[in-house]
Simulated scan of single mutants.
Amino acid sequence: MKVIFYIALFFLLAYLTIDVLIVGEGEERPVVQILAGLGLGSMLFYNFFFMKRKLAISKNWKFIRTWYYFILLFVVYYLSALVGLPSSFSSPTIRNLIITLYIFATILFIYNGTINNHLKGISLKLLLLFLLFNGIWEIMLAYTHQLERQGMEIINTSAGYVFVMILPMLMYIYKKENIWIFSISLLLTLMTGKRGALVIYVVLILYSFYSFKYLKNSFKLNWKALVFLVVIFIAYNFFVDNTFSSLQHRILNFENEKTGAIGSGRNIIWSTLIIQYLDGTVLHQIFGFGFFATRSISGFIAHNDFVEFLIDFGIFGLITWLLVLYRFHKNIKIVKQHDQYLFLMLAFCLIILGGRGLFSGTLRTDNINFSISIGYLLAIASTKINSVHE
C-alpha cells in the first residue's frame, strides 16, 4: 500500500500545483480535471483498506462520522438535482460534487498515510514544500497581474487562505520555531490582500494570548532563528514596498460608497438568499432548494457555508453542519490530557474551518490544503492517545 500512497500523493500534489499554474475555469482545463479524477480515485482506493483498522479515523473521531453523513447528504441532493428536486433552483454541477468529495477524501488519505508511517521524512517535507510553493506562486501571479478597482491596482488572491489553512500543521511540525512560522505566514497573507483570512489571524492571535504559555514552552531560540529573521525581514520589506498600499485600499474601501456593497457585495448576496429562504414553502425551509441552488437564485454561490447550507439543504442541512463543528470542538478536548500544544493546533483548525466558512466558504479547491493540515494533526493525536491507552 505504500506504493499506492505515493502514487496518490503524486496526483494530489500535481493537481494542486497545476490548478495554480494553469489559470482558467475548471471546465476549460482538461489536464486539471484528469489529475483531479486520478487523485480522487487513488485516494479512495488507498483509504478503502484502512476503514476497519484499529486507528480508523471514524473510530477515534466521532465528528468525522457526522461529516460522513453530511457528505452522503451532498450525494443525495446531487442525484435529486438531476431530476429537478427539491426545486427548479437546484444545480446538478458535477464539479461541485467532486470538490466536496475530494476535500473529505484528502482528510482520510493524509490521516491514513500518517498513521501508517507512509507520510514522514522526505515525503512530508516535499508535501509542505509544494504547498508553500503554490501559495507563494499565487502571490507572485497576483502581483504581476494586478486588478484595477476604483482607479487603483490591487492584489487580491485566495492564497491568503492557503497560508492560514496549513498554519497549524506547520506550527506543529516546526514547534520550536512556531512564533517565526506564524509571523511569516501572517506576512504572506498580508501580501494577498485577503481580508477574511486576516480576520481569522486576528482571532488566532487573540486565542494565542489566552494559551500563550503553551506556545512559549515549545518555542526555542536556536540557529534557525537567524534564518527566520532574515526571511521575515525580506518578506516585510517586499510587503511594505509592493503590496501595503493595495491592502490599505481594500481595508479602507470595505464598503463601496457608490453601490453600498459590503465585502465585495456579500451583503447583497446574503440578503437576496435569505429573502428567498423566508419566502419559500415550509418544505423548502426545512429541506432547502437543492444542490447549490444559491447560484441559480442570486447568480453567485453564497461565499458563506452557513448561508449556503441553509439555502441548499434547509434548516436540516445547516443543523447537520453545525453538529459537525460542535462535535469537532467536543472531540478534540480529549487531546488536552495528552498534549496541550497539539490541542492548541487542533483548536486553531476549528477556528480556521469556522472562519473560512463564514467569510468565503469551504467547498473550494484550495480547502484541500486544510484537509491536509487537519488530517495530519488528527493522525498525530490518535497516535498519542492510543499509545497511552496501550
Rank of each mutant, 00 (worst) to 15 (best):
Y277F: 11
G280Y: 08
K258R: 14
F289W: 08
Y277P: 02
Y277K: 03
H303Y: 03
F306C: 06
F291D: 00
G290Q: 02
S298H: 05
S271M: 12
V282T: 15
W270G: 00
F291C: 02
F300Q: 04
G299L: 05
F289D: 02
T259I: 06
S298F: 07
A261I: 08
L278D: 05
G299P: 04
I297G: 01
N267H: 08
G263C: 07
G299M: 06
T259M: 06
F287L: 11
T272I: 13
Q276R: 10
Y277L: 01
I286M: 15
K258E: 13
I286F: 14
Q285D: 08
T272W: 09
S296C: 13
S264L: 11
T272H: 11
R266P: 05
F291M: 07
I286L: 15
S296E: 11
G263F: 06
G299D: 08
I269Q: 02
D279A: 13
Q276T: 10
G299V: 05
F300C: 03
I269N: 02
T294R: 01
G280C: 10
R295S: 14
D279C: 10
N267G: 10
F292N: 09
K258T: 14
G290E: 01
R266Y: 07
L283Y: 15
N267E: 07
A302K: 00
A293K: 04
F292D: 06
N267I: 09
I262E: 09
T281V: 11
S264G: 08
S264N: 13
H303N: 00
I268V: 14
S271R: 13
A261C: 10
G299E: 08
L283S: 15
W270M: 05
N304P: 05
A302W: 00
F306H: 05
I301T: 07
Y277V: 04
A261M: 12
G299F: 06
G288C: 05
S296M: 11
D305W: 01
S296N: 14
G299N: 07
I269G: 01
S264T: 09
V282R: 15
V282P: 14
L283F: 15
S271Y: 11
F306P: 03
